[in-house]
Structure formats: C-alpha cells, structure tokens
Design a protein around this nucleic acid. Structure first.
Lengths: 186, 186
DNA sequence: CAATCATTGTACCGATCAGTACAATGATGA
DNA sequence: TCATCATTGTACTGATCGGTACAATGATTG
C-alpha cells in the first residue's frame, strides 16, 4: 500500500501544523505523525527541508489573501470589498480558532528567516485597504492610519481571542473594527 | 572562578531569551550560551525545568503589569492612569522592538501549557482598563468593547511593527488607540 | 576551626532533531 | 511487454534536545 501525493495536497496540511505548533515546534516526525507523509515524500517535494516547507506555506497563504482580499480591495467596489474583507477574514481565521501564520512568524526569531515575505504580506494588505478606503471617500490623510489600524486590529483580535479562548471576542472585535472604518466613510 | 546567581537575577535574563526565541525555540544550551548560566544552576533554581523557567518569567511579567498598569487603572485617577498606561506600555515594549511574551505564547501550542496564566493576564488588563474607562465617564455599555479594543490593539501593534520592522508603526498605533479611547470620554 | 549546605560545572543519559541514502514501488509511455 | 522515472518507506547519520547525577566549590554558621 502506497499513497501518492502532489505538492499542492501537502501544503495545506503543513499549514495547519505550522499554525498549531509554530516553526520551531513543528518537527518532521510530528508532520509524519499527523499526515502520514514520510520523510521520503517531504524531502522529494521540498528538498530545502523545513525551511522550504514553511516558505511554501507562506506563499500559499499569501496567494489566498492576494486573490480573496487584496485584489477585491484594489479593483472592486470599495465599500463592498471592505465589507467582504471582514466576512472573509472571519471565515478564514475560523472566528479566531485559526491563527495568522504570518503574524505568528513575525513575533519570534522565525521572522529572520522570512522577513521579506512577512513584510510583503502586511504591506500589501495595508496598501490595498488604504486604496479601498480612499476610493470609498476616506480623507487621504486618515487612510494610512486607518488601514494600519484595521490590519493590526485583526492580528490583535486573534491574539486576544486565543488568549481568552473565546471566539466571540474575535467576531466582536472584527465588528468593532468594521464600524470604526465605516464611520469615516461619510 | 565561580559566579553565583539568585533566582531573581536569572528570571529577567530568561525573559529576553523566551521573547526572542519563543518557548520551543529556547533550548537550555542557548540559555547557557547567552547568559553563562549552566544547567546546574538552572535546575537548582527551577527544578521543574524549562516549563518552570517559562512559568517564572510569566509570573514576573504579570507582576510588573499588575503593579505598573493594572493597579493604577483600578485605583488612581482614571484619566491619568490611562494616559500613563500608553507611555508605560510604549516604554515596556521598547516601541515595538520587544514583544509581549504572553501574547506570543497564546498564538501557538505553548498556550496549552499556560492557559490559566495567559487568560488571567488579559482578563485583568481588560477589567482594569474598563474600570478606568467607566470612572472617566465612558458609558458602561461601551466600556467592555473599548477596553478589549485597547488591549487587542496593543497586541496587533506589536505584530505589525515587528512584521514591518518599523517602530514608528508601534508608537503611531498606540497614539491612535489613545485618541480612540479619549474620544468617548466626553 | 570544623561542619553544613546552597550553589555550581561537567559528564552523562536516552530521546529526538533535521537531513541523507537508497532500494522498492508503481504509474506512464514506447 | 519493457524501460523509464517520479514517488515512497525505511534505515541510517551526527548533532542537539531536556533532564539527571554528582563531586567540587565556597560562603555561612556554630
């Protein structure tokens, strides 16, 4: 009996493990234990080892946000895209039960390994949100601060809801942030 | 030649290492490497090993916040205590170059080891801030949400400023949060 | 001075770490 | 049918992990 994978099948599985255990906490044996994928397969698809695995996960996360969040913010109807961002973010992070891997990597030494990817992810999120805010009628002087407040607010809501083990905190925080941004668009 | 330590001298050194490397990333050899403290001393003061070391650090952090932030928020002049909170938090986290260990532990599997301590730290911060907000004239219905927004905002600002490697982002975020809370106190 | 005892450095333990080597497997295409 | 080749399971490496054992050190106390 031999199960055959593709790289694209493995990345989402790796993502959940890195999310739960962090970069240092994720060992190859834990990956095998949870997924059934052996070292042979892992090093076949990711010759660069653990670092390449985490890099692939970050790229996958980034691609999802680019498609589902950033592009709509830049191109679609601004108000609709902002509203969609809140619901999509709430779903993606499963009301706070799932963390933001990029944000988590930013907090410890792992940042040194992926500083470019981490910076890019947040810069583009903020820029896209600022673009939508301006198009929706936000004064340009406030747009940058407000966009940073929104993105940082999501990260803070994730920390807090996990710390309190209360998913209502996450949903409520997103709601407060949404109203905060909405108030400026008159 | 033999250097003699006390437990109280070691805890702050451990704190910086856990902050930088995270719980899993912190190994006993790294501790010895950075501090010169050998395993003999470490296990003499912390018989429970790495878990007890991290627990002692969390207790130390908690005690600092209790004394410098929570108690003033509960007892002192409300407006002054809130204003002092922002400056003390900015100093404590060194404008975002230092992370919140409690928040970082909340994000990965480490949470399972210290869920009580993590929950307590944030609950008490939020409660103390809410108490000050109410005494300063904030409508009771808004106080809880606003307190959560403030505490979560600090955590988000830490993530964002580290991700962008820009300490201005942290200070600016704290400033925005301060204005946000101030606006309700009329 | 002698005795005690907290503290420390070092050698060691089995387990696990990331990573390598390679033969066995099995699907694909000539 | 046969050859090719991507993919996989397994056994292995040296290094490092958290933790233990214990003798040497040196300050304190009677």
């Amino acid at each position: 009996m031999k199960t055959v994978y593709e790289r694209a099948d493995i990345v989402p599985l790796l993502a959940e493990i890195f999310r739960e255990l962090g970069y240092e906490g994720t060992s190859l044996s834990r990956i095998t234990e949870r997924t059934g994928i052996g070292k042979g397969s892992l090093y076949h698809f990711f010759p660069g080892g653990k670092q390449e695995m985490a890099g692939a996960v970050l790229a996958d996360v980034d691609a999802w946000f680019e498609h589902a969040i950033y592009q709509p913010l830049r191109k679609d109807d601004a108000r609709e895209a902002i509203a969609a961002m809140w619901t999509n973010v709430n779903d993606y992070f499963r009301s706070g039960r799932r963390i933001c891997l990029v944000g988590a990597f930013a907090l410890d030494d792992t940042r040194e390994r992926f500083s470019a990817e981490i910076g890019d992810y947040f810069i583009r999120w903020i820029d896209a949100l600022r673009s939508a805010l301006i198009r929706a009628g936000c004064p340009e002087g406030e747009a940058q601060t407000l966009a940073e407040e929104g993105v940082a607010g999501v990260q803070g809501a994730l920390v807090l809801s996990r710390a309190l083990d209360d998913r209502m905190v996450f949903t409520r925080s997103l709601d407060t942030l949404a109203k905060r941004l909405d108030a400026v668009l008159q």
